[in-house]
């Protein structure tokens, strides 16, 4: 903070409204550049490391060996299955709850937001131990299969998924939309399908992707409950073949980053103008609906 202040003072030439916050150009790009370098170097280094053969030759053998390992595909498939299950459960839980809260008990919005942060308070390692002790009695089909992972991942990804979806609902004028729809005679299923959910597409997709990415990367719970998911496989490989493990890490990182980046870029741009559009769109849809009914 001190550094910023002095910097601002030194470069503070033009007084005026928007300029109070302006920092020196060199300072701005210096900071961002340094941070950027810190984030890019490990990726480049990993790439180089994974292509490095014996005696400094370049080789793709780490990748070909990986792709021919049967376990690579089976663990990846398992993690994707768990991810999809988690996403479905998350959405089934979040959509009705968050919409209900915003419509009926908006005063409790912040309370529920804090509740959604609870999984951050209880570290996943602790939850895992609790699960093993308190769910001993559950039928084997839940405890003995990765179903338990999906069930717990819904909880552990909640801080991210809830927040994303909640802020999407916050961004649209849900009450007006619902009131408009209802006064035009739409029932709840119509409201959800044609008015509310279409307006929340970015939030839904964001929550889904965050939950999915979480599942693809989660290691602690899976390894402690002895399920060989993709990240657990990654560690096993890392103990025997370093360059394969790094290659696999790069793949895993890309798996997490690509969908996230796509979401953020596409929906980030749309969000800018969506607020106004959402209302007009909803009224249009509601109009179409009612004319259809009439």
């Amino acid at each position: 903070m001190v550094a910023v202040t002095t910097n601002v003072g030194r470069n503070g030439t033009e007084p005026g409204a928007a300029n109070i916050l302006k920092l020196g150009r060199a300072f701005r790009y210096g900071i961002l550049g340094l941070v950027g370098v810190f984030f890019i170097i490990p990726i480049l280094a990993s790439a180089r490391f994974s292509f490095l053969g014996n005696n400094n030759t370049i080789t793709i053998s780490a990748y070909t060996q990986l792709f021919s390992t049967q376990q690579f595909w089976s663990t990846l498939f398992l993690s994707v299955k768990i991810g999809l299950g988690t996403v479905l459960l998350t959405l089934a839980l979040l959509i009705p709850t968050v919409i209900w809260i915003h419509l009926r008990i908006p005063k409790l919005k912040r309370v529920f937001e804090s509740i959604s942060l609870l999984p951050l308070v209880i570290p996943s390692v602790v939850v895992t131990l609790g699960v093993t002790t308190s769910f001993k009695g559950l039928p084997n089909i839940i405890m003995g299969t990765p179903v338990i992972l999906a069930l717990e991942y819904v909880i552990l990804a909640l801080p991210y998924s809830y927040r994303t979806f909640d802020s999407a609902v916050q961004a649209i004028d849900l009450k007006t939309l619902v009131d408009a729809g209802q006064s035009l005679g739409a029932g709840w299923s119509k409201l959800l399908r044609f008015v509310v959910l279409p307006n929340l597409r970015s939030g839904l997709l964001g929550a889904a992707i965050l939950a999915f990415a979480f599942c693809l990367g989660e290691f602690a719970v899976a390894s402690l409950l002895s399920f060989t998911t993709f990240p657990v496989f990654l560690v096993q490989v890392g103990q025997v073949a370093a360059s394969q493990a790094v290659a696999l890490s790069l793949i895993a990182l890309l798996f997490t980053w690509m969908p996230l980046a796509v979401i953020i870029i596409i929906f980030g741009q749309r969000n800018a103008s969506s607020k106004k559009r959402a209302v007009s769109l909803a009224t249009t849809i509601a109009q179409e609906e009612t004319t259809g009914i009439a």
Partner: peptide, 11 residues
């Protein structure tokens, strides 16, 4: 998680 650790090991 794990991938991050490995990419730093490579670095």
């Amino acid at each position: 998680g794990v991938p991050l650790a490995f990419s730093f090991i490579a670095t």
